[in-house]
Nucleic acid binder design. Structure first.
Length: 799
DNA sequence: CCTACTACGCTTTTT
DNA sequence: GCGTAGTAGG
């Protein structure tokens, strides 16, 4: 198992005692080092797996490490504690938080909950939220917690500063409210664990003795609180191994302290430092490009990343006239790559902000490219999901007022603001929770007939609570859905939006079932906890053949043969915020690290694109090529100017402004026009075309670049007529496909179906192609389209 | 108390 | 440009 490791990797594996800092460059095989190190500890050093802990940032990373350790460690690997910071802390707190005065049955508040709570507080403290936004206070509090500054410590440093005094007051109130609601926010999970360790020697010693060998991944992203947590745990045996790359530190905005890695040797004077500088992932050209960019940052740990891989293709850079052109090029290029033997899953499109994803989605739908978007609106933040979760939370934790207040009038029970105010007043007066006040609603003065409306709700919750320990979570959820008539109501609504909400609810039910299957002892609290701590990236299935769309942040730790780095424009990346910031120098360095992370995700090909103009928040913006692109050494860069058919008309429409049309429809319509234009011009499919590039303002060919090259995607290839024999087999296939499809897809040839973008149409042909079906549909408006069923999500509307 | 409309804020990134 | 929260009118 150690055979394929280089000297440095071997050193990192074998240096098991004392503090170790492994500076692991991008793609230098650090996960392999960590997993092999765990195996080495057990098999060569005879360490009991029970004494080993590996901490990561995402559940996905934890899951992968767990899997790989299981593969190489024969016996006992399951007792290694592999976990994220947050879930490790939850586990510790669930056991011991009562020692610092909290209930072990606490709820975890997400950002939505935090904002809601903050809103209440600002109202109560009569703070003008136009002057100081809820968000501002939450950011301040979060930063304080990242730095382990308690409410009392914060209060001590406010002299003469009005704003800080206000924040101190809000912070104090906020913590009290959390306590009252028996809730912790994300930052509390870390901070309270540290507090627990600081205040309770016994508990700390228990964990110190248990976790004798600590390994921390992505160490550059730890904040002060996380550092303190690790330091406390490691302070007895000092067997602490941290792995990180200061060049990939991209989470300063949420408190990551780059000093943790830069000053590691200062905190642990006897630390060994091992550098992993051989890259196994990328081509030499990609590496040169990335190195050229990151070299512009100051105060880095000296590193020289190298590779034995081939030089490979040059990094491709293209500037387009608009975001539409950019997205369309990427779609066409992916199709080209797929035809040349790559799979969709080999490709990833990375961008700075989630808002950029839409253009790609639309281009991909039109080009029939299967894709998956990671991130964006958090699934668990959707209204319908939150509603149902808050029912579960209410059942789980009687003290979570926020959850109760959210669902008390869902569905409409005729309980309004006036009644809620009376209940709240009663609760405050008697120092009981909101829910307890509801239980005694009859005693609340002047509540009148409202008491009768509250009663059924309380009875329902009580019944569910008594069932909670007995029936599985999935049944609990089903009963909530049935009793509240939530789905029924949505069905009655009958809109597309309602249907998608129902789909989300079904997905939630699916997630509950998955949880129950994976867990040995599934509980309601356990499920709610898991839900609170997942990120979208965690549930990513890499085996599915589809292009991934995600932000650069989400892409950290991943790798792809084909990477598209889109929107490389000054103002977008580096972001406008960073350029105009007070400490722009520092912030632009963080953006540069982000660019470095993005570029080093690429294994074989890196394509960088940008647009001259793009619509941002409904406004046209004109951006220059990103400074990061200029920093790429010229000899590894292949620069082409791109222009696509039809962009002139598009520019026209973009400026003429059609007030009736939403931008989304406009974009789609324009994309459609392009699509049809293409199909008409099929003859030259797959060849390179020479087009004049027209000057934007005059419409004349521009003087500086007369010609540009453009590949017409072969997706629009005219298929040759099939020979008679082939027609027969095709017909047989079609029949087989149809019979199978009717079972598996729920529709068959001749059925009317609906497509998300193309509208309604009739199924003309279905061909079974291994795992998936290729469905041909004659759309009423959009013409004949071939698509894969799993991706197209066609819905039958009529026989 | 409920519904429909308007206004606003957001968007840099997220465990 | 979108989605949500707040408000006014029924």
């Amino acid at each position: 198992m150690y055979e394929n490791m280089n000297d440095m990797q071997m050193q990192a594996v074998c240096r098991t005692e004392g503090p170790v800092l492994i500076l692991a460059g991008a793609g230098s095989g650090k996960t392999r080092v960590l997993t092999n190190r765990a195996a080495y500890l057990i098999e060569e050093k005879g360490v009991n797996p029970y004494h080993i802990m590996a901490i990561t940032f995402t559940n996905k990373a934890a899951g992968e490490m767990r899997e790989r350790i299981d593969e190489i460690v024969g016996f006992g690997s399951e007792s290694i504690w592999v976990s994220t910071f947050h879930s490790a802390c939850v586990r510790i707190l669930r056991r011991h938080i009562n020692r610092i005065g909290y209930d072990t049955n606490f709820t975890i508040y997400d950002t939505d909950d935090q904002k809601q709570l903050m809103k209440d507080i600002c109202k109560r403290l009569e703070i003008d939220t136009k002057l100081y936004k809820e968000r501002f206070f939450l950011n301040e509090i979060s930063h304080a917690k990242d730095e382990l500054i308690s409410t009392s410590a914060y209060r001590e440093h406010t002299e003469g500063n009005f704003v800080r005094q206000k924040v101190a007051q809000v912070y104090t109130e906020y913590q009290q409210m959390l306590y009252k609601n028996n809730a912790l926010d994300f930052d509390d999970l870390i901070m309270k664990t540290v507090e627990l360790f600081q205040n309770d020697r016994e508990v700390l010693e228990y964990y110190q003795d248990r976790l004798r060998y600590l390994m921390v991944d992505e160490y550059q992203d730890t904040n002060t609180a996380q550092f303190e947590l690790i330091r406390l745990l490691a302070s007895k045996y000092e067997n602490l191994c941290v792995v990180g790359d200061d060049d990939q530190s991209i989470y300063k905005f949420r408190g990551a302290n780059i000093g943790n890695i830069l000053n590691f040797e200062h905190y642990f004077p006897n630390a060994s430092v091992i550098k992993l500088e051989q890259n196994y992932r990328s081509t030499q050209n990609i590496l040169d490009a990335a190195n050229g960019v990151i070299a512009n940052n100051h105060g880095r740990k000296e590193k020289a990343l190298w590779t034995q891989n081939d030089a490979g293709d040059k990094v491709l850079f293209s500037q387009f006239d608009s975001g539409f052109d950019e997205a369309e090029f990427v779609a066409a290029d992916i199709q080209k790559k797929v035809r040349s033997g790559f799979r969709y899953q080999d490709c990833a499109v990375l961008y700075r902000t989630n808002a950029q994803s839409r253009l790609f989605e639309e281009s991909f739908i039109l080009a029939n490219i299967p894709y998956k978007m990671v991130g964006g609106v958090n699934f668990y933040a959707r209204k319908e999901i939150k509603d149902l979760l808050c029912y579960l939370k209410t059942i789980d934790n009687a003290r979570d007022d926020l959850a109760v207040r959210r669902v008390i009038n869902i569905p409409k029970r005729g309980i309004g603001a006036a009644t809620l105010a009376k209940v709240q007043a009663y609760a405050n007066e008697h120092e009981i929770s909101f829910y307890q006040a509801l239980r005694g609603a009859a005693q609340i003065p002047s509540i009148g007939r409202a008491a009768a409306k509250i009663e059924p709700f309380v009875t329902f919750i009580q019944t569910m609570r008594s069932k909670a320990g007995i029936i599985p979570v999935s049944e609990l959820l089903q009963e909530i859905i049935d009793m509240t008539g939530y789905v029924q109501e949505l069905e009655a609504e009958g809109t597309d939006e309602a249907r998608s909400r129902i789909e989300n609810i079904e997905e939630l039910q699916g997630k509950v079932l998955t949880y129950e299957q994976n867990e040995t002892e599934p509980t309601l609290s356990g499920f709610l906890e898991e839900v609170a701590l997942v990120a979208d990236i965690d549930s990513l299935d890499e085996d599915q053949n589809r292009v991934l769309l995600m932000t650069l942040h989400s892409a950290k730790g991943l790798e792809f043969p084909q990477v598209y780095l889109a929107g490389m424009e000054d103002g977008l990346f580096p972001s406008y915020m960073s350029i105009t910031s007070d400490n722009a120098l520092e912030e632009i360095e963080e953006e540069r690290r982000l660019a470095y992370v993005g570029m080093t995700r690429a294994m074989k090909n890196l394509t960088i694109t940008c647009a001259r103009q793009r619509v941002v928040r409904g406004q046209m913006q004109y951006n220059r090529v990103s400074r990061f692109v200029q920093e790429i050494p010229k000899q590894v860069l292949s620069q082409t100017k791109q222009k696509v058919y039809g962009s002139q008309e598009r520019q026209g429409t973009a400026f003429q402004q059609e007030p009736v049309q939403s931008a989304k429809n406009l974009a789609l319509q324009q994309a459609r026009e392009m699509f049809h234009g293409k199909t008409a011009a099929q003859q030259g499919a797959g060849q390179l075309y020479k087009n004049p590039v027209l000057d934007f303002s005059t419409g004349e060919p521009s003087s500086n670049d007369i010609h540009s090259w453009k590949a017409v995607p072969a997706q629009y290839d005219t298929k040759q007529e099939a020979a008679p024999a082939e027609i027969q087999t095709a017909a047989a296939d079609a029949q087989d496909g149809d019979a199978l499809a009717r079972k598996k897809l729920g529709y068959g040839v001749g059925d009317l179906v609906r497509h998300q973008k193309f509208g309604d149409g009739m199924v003309v042909k279905i061909v079974s192609g291994g795992r998936d079906f290729e469905v041909t549909v004659q759309f009423h408006q959009a013409g004949v389209k071939k698509m894969f069923a799993a991706f197209a999500k066609l819905k039958k509307i009529q026989e």
